[in-house]
Write a protein that binds this DNA or RNA. Structure first.
Lengths: 354, 354
DNA sequence: TATTAGCACTCATCGCGAAGGAGTGCTAAT
DNA sequence: ATTAGCACTCCTTCGCGATGAGTGCTAATA
């Protein structure tokens, strides 16, 4: 089942060539452009074997060969092993990104958006970045403030400095003392508590202590619940969806429409994020080739993802979506470098955003 | 220059037919499917006239005619006049939307997103909705809260209940009294003030009064400035970009790519919003045909926009983008109804969101 | 005078078959 | 084991005639 050296070299040559041209590769091409010094006939025999083994396939009888998913898979795995060390390639793109990360003074949202855009511009593929997922976080601070006679403002801060506001309408004006009491009640009972651990008994208890203001407590708890809910559907930023038009194999109406919808709805991309976050291989980089992807509209694409991690276990995903004949080499090394930048730089610096 | 009744009828028939089929319309078709009882020869003569006048044109010598931008323009203007009254058409879609608006309990963002989606599904065109633009608003409430030893939380509420949070890191812990003082200082000086009217002199004054905590004041003012900045780049929600693939005249690679980019970047859509908001015709509905649109990537499209207005002069834009042969009738009446729903329903109900 | 029938003409589109050519598999020679 | 040679496959391209939709013009008609 294992391939000998020569077969592997030929397969690699086929894939390399196909990545460049997007056209089926013939035996003569391989014979000419490799250092194997073999005639096209020999190559043909080997190709015949490779086809039988399922690494390549023929679009039609008298065409050259193109890599199968299995072929790509071998190629990628092999590459990942070989290139393990040469991380500090420090390409132009990465330097740019690094600069951007250091420059950041505005919100995470803006940084992620721009990062997606830059990645797309650099790779010529479609990109997505998910904001770090808030999960298992503790309440840090709750406050009720009187904005005007009829309106209270709830402010909830969760560890990791995720902030959430909510307006509550009240029937009659609350005096300062009552407001202070409620604030103390909320903070002494809830501060430091993981949101998930807030249960019905506690809520009932709070309400009882709040007396006639139980209704307000209820609304505050709704807002807290909303924080959890918000944390579930992660924000996803995309860019470069138009890049799919650069690859004829993706830009027929049917496929293009599906892909565009996927990028626009972002719903399905979430599946990709979840899948990436759960299945954690060693490197933090994953490659989905063709049908391997969890998003079925991308079955004619390849997807490379990286997970990055900020402090406090907040994880996010970066994804690059392109044709099967993606420049895996470039994409993987770019993602690796970017990932490590994010992992380290963000952890050093400790300010954060809302 | 003005068209006689017959010419107008023929032009109308040509446009109607072309809207349905997307194919050039021949004289025989018109002769058969109108109540004019004219032979195709007569129609041909009239069509020749209409072409000379610039209302229709021929893709090639022996093809039928298609409407020119000028032709569409006449058609739309005419239609807008005729249909002025029949607003209460209360179609299925509108009823659904109305229900959705009444149901709303979550944030504006979610409502607008879903509205865009629904519009796209109903019309089979691409849609966009801009969130109401915050402009000329007054500060309603400012608060500094101590979240932990090193961090202060700024909460700023603007009229219309736009809420903005910001974390401030401090070197040493502030005691309760100082915090209270700062809060009183901020609120007595700034509450009720239009954000634009805050000037350097006021800031200097505040800083002086804050004494050693001038740095904190500076950071709060930065956050206030950020509210203005936020207000400028309006959020725009889009949906149904994939619908362009339903119209062959828009879905060649070149055009599709440009349009998709426009929808993804949203930058350019902002121009459309601004244009719509400034140039205010009577009805609040605008129709851009082909090259009339301010967004050049949409030169092969028609764009219909409506402005809606919430309380306090907050205006937003709804846009529908489709091919030139758009079903203007349906789109306009849908937008008209939706607009009036938004105008009235939102004004009645007064709760709001952050 | 306006309308219409008739006709020649234009031109995009479709189908078809031949030519071209890239690439293969097989066989026989090296 | 490798390779040269050759027949074969089949996709692609191109040209060409047929088709047909639609026009403009002219002459006849009401």
């Amino acid at each position: 089942m294992d391939l000998d050296e020569r077969k592997r070299k030929i397969l690699q040559a086929i894939i390399r060539n196909y990545l460049e041209t997007g056209e089926p590769v013939g035996s003569r091409t391989i014979s000419k452009y490799t250092d194997l010094n073999l005639s096209s006939a020999t190559i043909r025999n080997e190709m015949s074997d490779l086809e039988e083994l399922g690494y390549i396939l023929q679009p039609h009888t008298s065409a050259g060969r193109i890599p199968s998913d299995k072929g790509y898979r071998l190629y990628v795995d092999q590459m990942m092993l070989e290139k393990e060390e040469q991380l500090n390639q420090a390409t132009q793109e990465v330097r740019e990104m690094q600069k951007m990360l250091l420059d950041r003074e505005d919100k995470m949202e803006a940084v992620l958006k721009q990062m997606a855009k830059m990645l797309a511009a650099n790779t010529n593929y479609a990109t997505m970045i998910s904001a770090p997922q808030v999960r298992g976080n503790k309440l840090k601070f709750i406050q009720l403030s009187r904005v005007d006679a009829r309106q209270l403002l709830t402010t909830i801060v969760v560890e990791g400095n995720v902030i959430k506001n909510n307006m509550i309408s009240v029937d009659q004006m609350l005096d300062d003392e009552t407001l202070l009491k409620l604030n103390i009640l909320l903070n002494t009972n809830l501060n430091g508590l993981p949101i998930e651990e807030i249960n019905l008994a506690m809520i009932a208890n709070l309400k009882q202590q709040a007396g006639i203001h139980a209704g307000i407590i209820a609304e505050v708890m709704d807002a807290v619940a909303a924080v959890i809910k918000d944390g579930e559907n992660v924000e996803i930023y995309t860019s470069g969806a138009n890049n799919i038009f650069k690859y004829p194999e993706l830009s027929d109406n049917q496929r293009a429409s599906e892909l565009i919808t996927t990028f626009e709805e972002k719903q399905l991309l979430n599946e990709l994020v979840q899948d990436t976050l759960t299945d954690e291989s060693g490197t933090g980089i994953q490659v989905y080739i063709g049908n391997e992807t969890p998003v079925k509209t991308m079955k004619d694409c390849s997807v490379v993802t990286a997970t990055y991690e900020l402090e406090e276990g907040m994880k996010g995903t970066i994804g690059i979506i392109g044709p099967r004949r993606m420049d895996y080499d470039k994409v993987i090394s770019t993602l690796k470098t970017l990932k490590s930048q994010l992992d380290t730089i963000y952890k050093k610096d400790d300010r954060d955003s809302g």
